[in-house]
Design a protein around this nucleic acid. Sequence first.
RNA 1: GCCGGGAUGGGGUAGCUUGGUUAUCCUAGGGGACUGUGGAUCCCUUGACUCGGGUUCAAAUCUCGGUCCCGGCCCCA
Length: 414
Amino acid sequence: MIRCPRGTRDFLPDEMERRRHYENVLRTVAGTFGFREIATPIFEEASLFVIKSGPNILDEIYAFKDKGDRDLALRPELTAPVVRMFVNGMSNEPRPLKLFYFGQCFRYERPQSGRYREFFQFGAEMIGNANAETDAEAIALAVSMIKALGLRKYKIRIGHIGILRNMLAEANVPQDGMQEILQKLDKKMYDEAGSLLRSAGVCDDSVKRIFETAGTTGGKEVLDKITDDAAAYMKEVMEILEAMNVTDAEIDLGVVRGLDYYTGMVFEAEAPSLGAEKQICGGGSYSLSELFGGEKVFSTGFAIGFDRILLAMEKEGQTFRNKGVDAYVVPVSDDVRLEAVKIASMLRSRGIVTDIDIMRRKMAKAMKHAASAGARYAVIIGKSELEENSVTVRNMETGDQRMIRLDELFGLFL
RNA sequence: GCCGGGAUGGGGUAGCUUGGUUAUCCUAGGGGACUGUGGAUCCCUUGACUCGGGUUCAAAUCUCGGUCCCGGCCCCA
């Protein structure tokens, strides 16, 4: 028995219908913010991801050589491909570019709850500017999408990577040791961050101030304590968000996020109903295009973990009802099957979702099948009906049924 | 890569401690009882011990390893 590979999933029709529905909710919201959808290849030159994330990334992605000896990789994320696309063919478009995408990504990792080797991301990028309006727009879009999906419990935290970086630089922490310290601070591992700071020669007083800043959380007023241009900037972002009616995002200066291509604002969303893998969204402002051979352009973007957010909705008890077919055509006897096929075709050509018994089942079994397929109406076609140019229509929910003329049948589904 | 718990028809399960006939029950799928009316009932039928090695007269059951799943660590671009 061959099964699907580790960390991948099959999506059966019910599940797929649900996923498509929510994908389209996200597409619609992104559209209302003026974003337009794009798609990039599933695989890219491996170097695209190496340039962005360093050579160690190769251990964590599906990288391979093709028959032409090219080094390729299944995409582990979509920001790099989108920026590559911008550099290749969109660098002279009017700015800002507002792009969104939905697609699968692949990472060679140990699967666990909410983590797969093939997973789906919905993301958006704004390319061409770095200011408070841009950052606020990205956050507002993310929040609107989460809300539109119907997720109730979530937490949005906004930080600014520059504030802690500036403090570390002022304390004379060398550039190459910074990332490790920031990572510890991001995880609230203060003991380890402390020993790293002290061994970098930072005095106790500075360490204390750094910890205080990293632990700063709350509304925009907490920014008043910080004397840094970035704090004033973040206050502006928060004010714009307020004007956009986004009030449930809070400041957390400990949000530092992974790699150092982030340049300023960073944010993430988590769903507390999930376990260890509870982050459902992450993003910030960055500058990548110059690494791929283009001019330096500031951008802001984020990605939503589609599988995780669906999982969180499920855990909150949100259910999804599959639509089923509008009409299920049931021929009463074999000698009316051709007529039944004609009527089904007529309904289909009018855009009505129509199924028909093609198993040559007896009528009772066909009715049973119509019920289990979730049909709204059974369209019963027999000799006596056809003699009067009619069919019998049965409402499968109420059980009411009546004869209806063929030329009126279509109107029933409007 | 590391730690822990698992794996029995399509789905859900009993059996495993204490090895021993044809592997339990529910559900689902196909057909029939019912020759023109669904979710009911009854009958027939399809369908499983994760894979490989070991112990044994005999393994779903004991044992070792692989694979996969679940939870966590690491990582999380």
